[in-house]
Protein backbone atom coordinates (compact mmCIF):
# COMPACT_ATOMS: atom_id res chain seq x y z
CA UNK A 1 0.00 0.00 0.00
CA UNK A 2 1.22 3.45 -0.91
CA UNK A 3 1.21 6.16 1.75
CA UNK A 4 1.42 8.94 -0.77
CA UNK A 5 -1.38 8.98 -3.27
CA UNK A 6 -3.08 11.34 -5.68
CA UNK A 7 -6.55 12.56 -4.85
CA UNK A 8 -8.20 12.63 -8.28
CA UNK A 9 -11.40 10.61 -8.54
CA UNK A 10 -12.11 10.66 -12.25
CA UNK A 11 -8.57 10.15 -13.53
CA UNK A 12 -8.12 6.58 -12.20
CA UNK A 13 -11.28 5.51 -14.04
CA UNK A 14 -9.99 7.03 -17.26
CA UNK A 15 -6.71 5.18 -16.78
CA UNK A 16 -8.53 1.93 -16.14
CA UNK A 17 -11.14 2.41 -18.87
CA UNK A 18 -9.35 0.66 -21.79
CA UNK A 19 -8.43 -2.39 -19.76
CA UNK A 20 -11.87 -2.68 -18.15
CA UNK A 21 -13.69 -2.12 -21.45
CA UNK A 22 -11.76 -4.90 -23.16
CA UNK A 23 -12.18 -7.16 -20.16
CA UNK A 24 -15.95 -6.68 -20.15
CA UNK A 25 -16.54 -6.92 -23.88
CA UNK A 26 -14.15 -9.76 -24.75
CA UNK A 27 -13.78 -11.68 -21.48
CA UNK A 28 -16.65 -11.31 -19.03
CA UNK A 29 -19.52 -10.98 -21.50
CA UNK A 30 -18.46 -14.02 -23.61
CA UNK A 31 -17.85 -16.04 -20.45
CA UNK A 32 -21.34 -15.13 -19.22
CA UNK A 33 -22.73 -16.11 -22.62
CA UNK A 34 -20.99 -19.47 -22.40
CA UNK A 35 -22.49 -20.06 -18.99
CA UNK A 36 -25.96 -19.00 -20.22
CA UNK A 37 -25.77 -21.18 -23.33
CA UNK A 38 -24.71 -24.16 -21.28
CA UNK A 39 -28.24 -24.19 -19.83
CA UNK A 40 -29.97 -23.81 -23.20
CA UNK A 41 -30.61 -26.03 -26.15
CA UNK A 42 -30.93 -24.74 -29.71
CA UNK A 43 -32.89 -26.53 -32.39
CA UNK A 44 -31.19 -27.54 -35.62
CA UNK A 45 -31.94 -24.23 -37.35
CA UNK A 46 -30.97 -22.02 -34.43
CA UNK A 47 -34.42 -20.43 -34.26
CA UNK A 48 -35.77 -21.76 -30.99
CA UNK A 49 -33.84 -22.00 -27.79
CA UNK A 50 -35.24 -23.70 -24.73
CA UNK A 51 -34.03 -23.73 -21.16
CA UNK A 52 -32.94 -27.25 -20.36
CA UNK A 53 -31.34 -26.86 -16.94
CA UNK A 54 -28.40 -29.12 -16.35
CA UNK A 55 -29.19 -31.57 -19.11
CA UNK A 56 -26.26 -30.39 -21.27
CA UNK A 57 -23.95 -31.27 -18.41
CA UNK A 58 -25.70 -34.55 -17.77
CA UNK A 59 -25.35 -35.39 -21.44
CA UNK A 60 -21.61 -34.83 -21.16
CA UNK A 61 -21.17 -37.30 -18.34
CA UNK A 62 -22.96 -39.99 -20.27
CA UNK A 63 -21.28 -39.24 -23.59
CA UNK A 64 -18.58 -41.83 -24.31
CA UNK A 65 -16.84 -39.29 -26.55
CA UNK A 66 -16.54 -36.76 -23.75
CA UNK A 67 -15.38 -39.35 -21.24
CA UNK A 68 -12.83 -40.46 -23.81
CA UNK A 69 -11.74 -36.84 -24.19
CA UNK A 70 -11.27 -36.53 -20.42
CA UNK A 71 -9.13 -39.63 -20.40
CA UNK A 72 -7.11 -38.51 -23.43
CA UNK A 73 -6.54 -35.11 -21.81
CA UNK A 74 -5.32 -36.71 -18.58
CA UNK A 75 -2.93 -39.08 -20.36
CA UNK A 76 -1.69 -36.29 -22.60
CA UNK A 77 -1.18 -33.70 -19.85
CA UNK A 78 0.58 -36.14 -17.52
CA UNK A 79 2.85 -37.47 -20.31
CA UNK A 80 3.81 -34.01 -21.55
CA UNK A 81 4.50 -32.79 -18.02
CA UNK A 82 6.63 -35.79 -16.99
CA UNK A 83 8.57 -36.00 -20.25
CA UNK A 84 9.30 -32.30 -20.48
CA UNK A 85 10.08 -31.74 -16.81
CA UNK A 86 12.18 -34.89 -16.52
CA UNK A 87 14.31 -34.05 -19.52
CA UNK A 88 14.67 -30.40 -18.48
CA UNK A 89 15.68 -31.35 -14.94
CA UNK A 90 18.37 -33.65 -16.33
CA UNK A 91 19.73 -30.82 -18.48
CA UNK A 92 19.49 -28.28 -15.66
CA UNK A 93 21.41 -30.53 -13.26
CA UNK A 94 24.06 -31.06 -15.92
CA UNK A 95 24.39 -27.34 -16.65
CA UNK A 96 24.59 -26.65 -12.92
CA UNK A 97 27.94 -28.50 -12.87
CA UNK A 98 29.36 -26.28 -15.61
CA UNK A 99 31.34 -23.16 -14.92
CA UNK A 100 32.48 -21.64 -18.19
CA UNK A 101 30.11 -23.24 -20.67
CA UNK A 102 26.83 -22.44 -18.84
CA UNK A 103 25.84 -19.52 -21.02
CA UNK A 104 26.66 -21.31 -24.28
CA UNK A 105 24.51 -24.30 -23.39
CA UNK A 106 21.75 -22.04 -22.07
CA UNK A 107 21.61 -20.11 -25.34
CA UNK A 108 21.50 -23.36 -27.30
CA UNK A 109 18.67 -24.72 -25.16
CA UNK A 110 16.30 -21.77 -24.62
CA UNK A 111 15.28 -20.80 -28.13
CA UNK A 112 12.50 -23.40 -28.65
CA UNK A 113 10.42 -21.23 -26.31
CA UNK A 114 10.04 -18.86 -29.23
CA UNK A 115 8.79 -21.49 -31.67
CA UNK A 116 5.01 -21.36 -32.04
CA UNK A 117 3.22 -24.55 -30.89
CA UNK A 118 1.68 -24.84 -34.34
CA UNK A 119 5.11 -24.71 -35.98
CA UNK A 120 6.48 -27.23 -33.46
CA UNK A 121 3.61 -29.52 -34.43
CA UNK A 122 4.35 -29.14 -38.15
CA UNK A 123 8.08 -29.85 -37.60
CA UNK A 124 7.48 -33.08 -35.70
CA UNK A 125 4.69 -34.06 -38.09
CA UNK A 126 7.26 -33.85 -40.87
CA UNK A 127 9.95 -35.78 -38.98
CA UNK A 128 7.48 -38.56 -38.24
CA UNK A 129 5.82 -38.48 -41.67
CA UNK A 130 5.22 -42.17 -42.46
CA UNK A 131 6.35 -41.93 -46.09
CA UNK A 132 9.23 -39.44 -46.11
CA UNK A 133 10.02 -38.81 -42.43
CA UNK A 134 13.36 -39.53 -40.75
CA UNK A 135 12.03 -41.22 -37.62
CA UNK A 136 9.81 -43.89 -39.29
CA UNK A 137 12.87 -44.74 -41.41
CA UNK A 138 14.99 -45.17 -38.26
CA UNK A 139 12.21 -47.03 -36.43
CA UNK A 140 11.75 -49.39 -39.38
CA UNK A 141 15.34 -50.57 -38.97
CA UNK A 142 14.45 -51.82 -35.47
CA UNK A 143 11.27 -53.39 -36.78
CA UNK A 144 8.69 -50.80 -35.66
CA UNK A 145 6.12 -49.81 -38.23
CA UNK A 146 5.34 -46.17 -37.37
CA UNK A 147 2.09 -44.71 -38.64
CA UNK A 148 0.47 -41.88 -36.72
CA UNK A 149 -2.31 -41.60 -39.27
CA UNK A 150 -3.76 -45.00 -38.41
CA UNK A 151 -2.26 -45.91 -35.02
CA UNK A 152 -3.79 -44.28 -31.94
CA UNK A 153 -0.70 -44.85 -29.83
CA UNK A 154 1.64 -43.41 -32.45
CA UNK A 155 -0.54 -40.31 -32.82
CA UNK A 156 -0.54 -39.74 -29.05
CA UNK A 157 3.26 -40.20 -28.87
CA UNK A 158 3.67 -37.68 -31.68
CA UNK A 159 1.62 -34.92 -30.05
CA UNK A 160 3.22 -35.58 -26.66
CA UNK A 161 6.74 -35.27 -28.11
CA UNK A 162 5.90 -32.11 -30.07
CA UNK A 163 4.27 -30.46 -27.03
CA UNK A 164 6.98 -31.52 -24.58
CA UNK A 165 9.76 -30.36 -26.92
CA UNK A 166 8.33 -26.87 -27.03
CA UNK A 167 8.23 -26.67 -23.22
CA UNK A 168 11.81 -27.89 -22.53
CA UNK A 169 13.38 -24.45 -22.57
CA UNK A 170 10.86 -22.95 -20.15
CA UNK A 171 11.29 -25.74 -17.60
CA UNK A 172 15.05 -25.69 -18.08
CA UNK A 173 15.34 -21.97 -17.25
CA UNK A 174 13.24 -22.29 -14.09
CA UNK A 175 15.05 -25.44 -12.93
CA UNK A 176 18.44 -23.75 -13.43
CA UNK A 177 17.25 -20.74 -11.40
CA UNK A 178 15.92 -23.10 -8.71
CA UNK A 179 19.21 -25.03 -8.56
CA UNK A 180 21.24 -21.84 -8.31
CA UNK A 181 19.19 -20.69 -5.34
CA UNK A 182 20.18 -23.77 -3.32
CA UNK A 183 23.14 -22.76 -1.12
CA UNK A 184 26.31 -24.59 -2.16
CA UNK A 185 27.27 -24.96 1.51
CA UNK A 186 24.54 -27.56 2.02
CA UNK A 187 25.87 -29.78 -0.72
CA UNK A 188 29.45 -29.20 0.44
CA UNK A 189 28.52 -30.26 3.95
CA UNK A 190 26.90 -33.40 2.58
CA UNK A 191 29.98 -34.09 0.45
CA UNK A 192 32.23 -33.77 3.50
CA UNK A 193 29.96 -36.23 5.29
CA UNK A 194 30.67 -38.64 2.47
CA UNK A 195 27.49 -38.41 0.39
CA UNK A 196 28.12 -39.11 -3.29
CA UNK A 197 26.59 -37.08 -6.15
CA UNK A 198 23.56 -39.36 -6.52
CA UNK A 199 22.81 -39.34 -2.78
CA UNK A 200 23.24 -35.55 -2.66
CA UNK A 201 20.84 -35.14 -5.54
CA UNK A 202 18.07 -37.18 -3.96
CA UNK A 203 18.58 -36.10 -0.33
CA UNK A 204 19.39 -32.41 -0.75
CA UNK A 205 18.88 -31.01 -4.22
CA UNK A 206 15.54 -32.59 -5.03
CA UNK A 207 13.76 -31.70 -1.73
CA UNK A 208 15.04 -28.13 -1.84
CA UNK A 209 13.95 -27.86 -5.45
CA UNK A 210 10.38 -28.86 -4.61
CA UNK A 211 8.90 -25.31 -4.70
CA UNK A 212 10.21 -24.91 -8.27
CA UNK A 213 9.04 -28.40 -9.19
CA UNK A 214 5.55 -27.78 -7.85
CA UNK A 215 5.27 -24.45 -9.60
CA UNK A 216 6.40 -26.00 -12.91
CA UNK A 217 3.98 -28.89 -12.40
CA UNK A 218 1.02 -26.49 -12.39
CA UNK A 219 2.39 -24.41 -15.27
CA UNK A 220 3.01 -27.50 -17.39
CA UNK A 221 -0.43 -28.94 -16.75
CA UNK A 222 -2.01 -25.61 -17.73
CA UNK A 223 0.21 -25.53 -20.82
CA UNK A 224 -0.65 -29.10 -21.81
CA UNK A 225 -4.38 -28.54 -21.30
CA UNK A 226 -4.82 -25.17 -22.97
CA UNK A 227 -1.83 -24.04 -25.02
CA UNK A 228 -1.45 -27.22 -27.01
CA UNK A 229 -4.55 -26.59 -29.11
CA UNK A 230 -2.29 -25.50 -31.96
CA UNK A 231 -0.15 -28.63 -31.76
CA UNK A 232 -3.22 -30.85 -32.07
CA UNK A 233 -4.84 -28.78 -34.81
CA UNK A 234 -1.64 -28.60 -36.86
CA UNK A 235 -1.02 -32.34 -36.64
CA UNK A 236 -3.65 -34.95 -35.81
CA UNK A 237 -6.81 -32.79 -35.57
CA UNK A 238 -7.95 -34.98 -32.69
CA UNK A 239 -7.70 -38.24 -34.61
CA UNK A 240 -7.31 -41.02 -35.39
CA UNK A 241 -10.63 -42.17 -33.91
CA UNK A 242 -10.58 -39.39 -31.24
CA UNK A 243 -7.28 -40.68 -29.84
CA UNK A 244 -5.84 -37.17 -29.42
CA UNK A 245 -9.09 -35.21 -29.00
CA UNK A 246 -8.17 -33.21 -25.89
CA UNK A 247 -10.88 -31.17 -24.15
CA UNK A 248 -9.86 -27.80 -25.59
CA UNK A 249 -9.91 -29.22 -29.08
CA UNK A 250 -13.30 -30.82 -28.52
CA UNK A 251 -14.82 -27.49 -27.39
CA UNK A 252 -13.62 -25.91 -30.61
CA UNK A 253 -14.66 -28.81 -32.79
CA UNK A 254 -18.15 -29.24 -31.31
CA UNK A 255 -18.75 -25.47 -31.34
CA UNK A 256 -17.42 -24.46 -34.74
CA UNK A 257 -17.47 -27.57 -36.85
CA UNK A 258 -20.27 -29.56 -35.19
CA UNK A 259 -22.36 -26.42 -34.39
CA UNK A 260 -23.50 -28.07 -31.15
CA UNK A 261 -23.63 -24.88 -29.09
CA UNK A 262 -25.20 -26.20 -25.90
CA UNK A 263 -22.73 -29.02 -25.52
CA UNK A 264 -19.77 -26.84 -26.48
CA UNK A 265 -20.82 -24.20 -23.93
CA UNK A 266 -21.20 -26.82 -21.20
CA UNK A 267 -17.69 -28.05 -22.03
CA UNK A 268 -16.42 -24.47 -21.82
CA UNK A 269 -17.89 -24.14 -18.35
CA UNK A 270 -16.17 -27.36 -17.23
CA UNK A 271 -12.87 -26.04 -18.60
CA UNK A 272 -13.37 -22.71 -16.82
CA UNK A 273 -13.80 -24.55 -13.52
CA UNK A 274 -10.57 -26.45 -14.18
CA UNK A 275 -8.63 -23.24 -14.96
CA UNK A 276 -10.03 -21.57 -11.85
CA UNK A 277 -8.94 -24.52 -9.72
CA UNK A 278 -5.44 -24.52 -11.26
CA UNK A 279 -5.09 -20.74 -10.85
CA UNK A 280 -6.10 -20.93 -7.20
CA UNK A 281 -3.52 -23.67 -6.61
CA UNK A 282 -0.87 -21.59 -8.37
CA UNK A 283 -1.58 -18.48 -6.31
CA UNK A 284 -1.67 -20.41 -3.07
CA UNK A 285 1.83 -21.58 -3.92
CA UNK A 286 3.01 -18.05 -4.67
CA UNK A 287 1.77 -16.92 -1.26
CA UNK A 288 3.65 -19.76 0.39
CA UNK A 289 6.84 -18.84 -1.41
CA UNK A 290 6.55 -15.26 -0.15
CA UNK A 291 6.18 -16.50 3.43
CA UNK A 292 9.21 -18.80 3.05
Amino acid sequence: MKRTIFRNQLLPWLLLAPQLAITFVFFLWPAAQAIRQSFLRQDAFGINTTFVGLSNFKALWTSPEYLNSLQVTAVFAVSVTILSMGFSLLLAVAVDRMIRSTSVYTTLLVWPYAVAPAVAGILWWFIFNPTIGVMPYVLATVGYDWNHISSKTDAMILVVIASAWKQISYNFLFFVAGLQSIPASLREAAAIDGAGPVRRFFDITLPLLSPTTFFLLVVNIVYAMFDTFAVIDATTEGGPAQATNIMVYKVYFDGFVGQNMGSSAAQSVVLMLIVIALTVIQFRWVEKKVAY
Binding site: F24, P30, A31, Q37, V248, M261, S268, L271
Partner: peptide, 24 residues
Protein backbone atom coordinates in the same frame (compact mmCIF):
# COMPACT_ATOMS: atom_id res chain seq x y z
CA UNK B 1 -11.71 -3.21 -10.68
CA UNK B 2 -8.67 -5.17 -9.53
CA UNK B 3 -10.67 -8.41 -9.40
CA UNK B 4 -12.19 -7.83 -12.83
CA UNK B 5 -8.69 -7.70 -14.25
CA UNK B 6 -7.59 -10.68 -12.17
CA UNK B 7 -10.41 -12.83 -13.55
CA UNK B 8 -9.05 -12.59 -17.09
CA UNK B 9 -6.28 -14.94 -15.93
CA UNK B 10 -8.89 -17.64 -15.56
CA UNK B 11 -10.53 -17.14 -18.95
CA UNK B 12 -8.07 -18.16 -21.67
CA UNK B 13 -9.47 -17.68 -25.17
CA UNK B 14 -9.76 -21.45 -25.64
CA UNK B 15 -12.52 -21.80 -23.03
CA UNK B 16 -14.77 -18.99 -24.26
CA UNK B 17 -13.99 -19.30 -27.91
CA UNK B 18 -17.47 -19.53 -29.47
CA UNK B 19 -19.10 -16.54 -27.66
CA UNK B 20 -15.97 -14.39 -28.09
CA UNK B 21 -16.06 -15.08 -31.79
CA UNK B 22 -19.73 -14.01 -31.84
CA UNK B 23 -18.91 -10.74 -30.07
CA UNK B 24 -16.15 -9.95 -32.54
Amino acid sequence: AFWCIFITLMLPVEVRIVPTFQVV
